[in-house]
Design a protein around this nucleic acid. Structure first.
Lengths: 193, 193
DNA sequence: TACTATACGGAATCGTGATTCCGTTTGAGT
DNA sequence: ACTCAAACGGAATCACGATTCCGTATAGTA
């Protein structure tokens, strides 16, 4: 038994820089084209070798998770803002719009919410997204602005659906800003009355 | 130049039987688990060798397209029924519900509408799905039961979104019948007034 | 029943992308 | 400047699923 589980020691300057470059490149590429961009391509875009990518992230899934955490942190922030809004519906609506923008801007986020249950749940839990969502939904129902049958799990489901719409072949049939209309339909439909 | 482009000659009885078995197995497996079930697994489930699968379908994409045609034919039928319904909204709503059920029952269909633009467009065009959809949307708007800003391309987009919800990790958070609520939201939101 | 074009099965091959390995380079402490 | 653990690059390896190939089996026909 040594002093601690993990060996804490500051990263060398170049390592720190490269780690950031890899994350940036991955965010850029995966955001635009989804998670199945190749590791080689990410490395090239980051200006490093594949080996370096793997020194920082044991495997592709870990890289994806790191990116996901970023996003879920932002989502948590959106939820807190919504809870702080004096007008429950305005808060909810704003959160949904920003959330949808996040999805639309980042194809990888949608794919993670669709196909990577583990990475998603880990990231969401870490930033208390489930609790925050539940609180927001309860608050809106209590204020009578949200349909009573809305389940808090519907929020990620719906956002994932809207995100999907954007990059899907079917979504292309609806044109460039089809997702905006989609979001309107859903918001209108979730609203009480 | 020979007599015709394609060599028309009846398939041998066993070939006919095997072709059907392959399609059935593929429909079953891909319906449940999506298009990336392996060709070997489909062959095994159909009780034939991989080679046989490839004699009937030159490649995986062709197999997927064959299945997609099935589905789009059914979708076209739904659209025609909707157009025949004396009550425009009832017709529309019913079509959307049946369409959503189709998506939910067939994961591969949703994936095709998401990722296989070519196969989808070919199948849809063949069965006049785009025209029918446009007619239905126009009719509903004329009757004043559908929001005026609905684009006919929104229909496949929205159904694809609902289908995605069902099998996605995010959708699982909403529970077994989250998609039913999702569809309600969307229908409510698309309805005029 | 014999013949032969069709069809079949499944091992071998190909292609692609993730992951590993190892010889070389470099940051940072002396 | 010198040392060496930490990092690096990228070729080699692995894994896995699609696709091809070819020797064998069989439906349909005379």
């Amino acid at each position: 038994m040594s002093t601690s589980e993990v060996d804490i020691r500051p990263l060398r300057a170049d390592a720190l820089r490269n780690r950031a470059r890899v994350l940036d490149a991955a965010r850029e590429l995966m955001g635009a084209r989804g998670v199945d961009v190749g590791m080689e391509e990410i490395a090239r875009a980051a200006g490093v070798g594949v080996g370096t990518v793997y020194r920082h992230f044991p495997n592709k899934e870990a890289l994806i998770s790191a990116l996901a955490e970023d996003r879920f942190e932002r989502i948590a922030a959106l939820l807190r803002e919504a809870l702080d809004d004096p007008d429950p519906w305005h808060g909810f609506e704003t959160m949904m719009r920003r959330g949808a923008e996040l999805q639309v801007a980042d194809r990888a986020l949608t794919e993670v919410m669709r196909n990577h249950g583990n990475a998603m749940e880990a990231a969401a839990t870490k930033y208390e997204v489930p609790e925050l969502t539940e609180r927001l939904v309860k608050r809106c129902k209590a204020a009578g602005v949200l349909r009573d049958d809305v389940h808090h799990g519907d929020i990620p489901m719906v956002l994932c659906g809207v995100g999907t719409a954007t990059c899907s072949a079917a979504g292309r049939l609806a044109g460039e800003d089809g997702w905006k209309r989609y979001l309107e339909y859903v918001l209108e439909g979730m609203r009480a009355e």
